[in-house]
Structures are given as C-alpha cells and as structure tokens.
C-alpha cells in the first residue's frame, strides 16, 4: 500500500485504540489523524484507514462522506468556511459570500487557481452572537464586515507570498 502513517502518527493511533473498547470506534479519530497527516482523505487513504481500523472500505467511505469536515480533495492553503445560517445571514453573511466569490473567483466547493483559497459554505458554526463568522482553517474570525474580511484576506495573501506563519 502506497500511503501509510508516519511512525509518530502510528504511535498516536495506538494510543487512540486504548480509549475505546471497540476498535471501530477509532474511525473518526483515525480519519482526523489521516487528514492531518495527508491533508485530505483520498480513496487511497480511506482504504488504508479501513485496513488500520479493521472495517470494510465502503463503511469508511460512508463515514468520510457523511461528515462535512473531511476533505475528499485537497483544500486550499486557506480553507474558508463561511457560515450562512440564520444569525450570520441576518447580519450580512451574503455580502461576505459575494465578496469571496468575486475577489477570489471561487465558488463554493472550489479552490482558487493559485491553490491558496478553497471556499466552503457551512452551516451554523456556533458563534451566532459574533455573526457573521468565517472559519479559516481552524480559527474563527468573527463580527465580520466586508472590509474586515478584505483585510484578513489581504493579510493571508501577503503572508503566503513570504514565509508561512499560518493563521
């Protein structure tokens, strides 16, 4: 098999196994681990995980497709997850969406041509009092306006052209 966990990841997985009485329960943590290791969970990765967890490949595939946070294709360096649910909607999420689509030239589900930004519309991120909210990779950016978002995106673009400091 071509893909495989690193030594460190395997060790981490071994620890995860001890948390559950049934190895199948390690599937979600294993997929998280795989996504961290490989960036996304390709079919090949899913087969590897299936073998690791001891489950049929199709069941792993079902799970990976069910949960929206597992990437089946490579996301951009900055994965923009725009909340579009009610509180964010009431406070201007649609403007943010238009802004992203126009300035970055990406539609939901797409990655910008330079591979820098991928765009995903998501449902309630659980930060309704600071709406509208966008999650970029693992961080929340809240109480946004188009201007604020513009500054953030400019910053990210600038960041990525130089050394990577992440977000």
């Amino acid at each position: 098999m071509a893909v495989q966990f690193s030594e460190a990841a395997l060790k981490e997985y071994e620890e995860i196994v001890t948390r559950y009485p049934d190895k199948k329960a390690t599937l979600l943590p294993a997929l998280w681990l795989a996504q961290r290791e490989f960036g996304y969970v390709s079919d090949e990765v899913l087969e590897y995980i299936a073998q690791l967890v001891g489950m049929p490949a199709v069941k792993v595939y079902e799970v990976a497709e069910f949960y929206t946070m597992f990437h089946k294709k490579k996301p951009g360096k900055y994965h923009l997850q725009l909340c579009q649910t009610i509180s964010c909607y009431l406070r201007g999420a649609e403007d943010l969406r238009s802004y992203i689509q126009e300035t970055l030239q990406v539609l939901p589900g797409e990655t910008s041509a330079d591979g820098l930004f991928s765009f995903q519309l998501v449902e309630c991120l659980g930060s309704c009092h600071t709406a509208p909210v966008i999650k970029i990779n693992d961080e929340y950016y809240d109480s946004l306006t188009v201007e604020k978002l513009d500054a953030i995106i400019r910053h990210l673009k600038k960041n990525s052209s130089g050394e990577d400091h992440g977000v």
Binding site: D43, L46, E47, A57, V58, K59, Y61, E62, E65, F66
Partner: peptide
Amino acid sequence: GIISRGHESSISLF
C-alpha cells in the same frame, strides 16, 4: 453503502 447524507444520499460502491 449509502454515501453523503440528506437528499444527497446515494447508494454506492467504494
């Protein structure tokens, strides 16, 4: 298996 969810659910092989 049934992949995806909600109205997008569809029967599929790996």
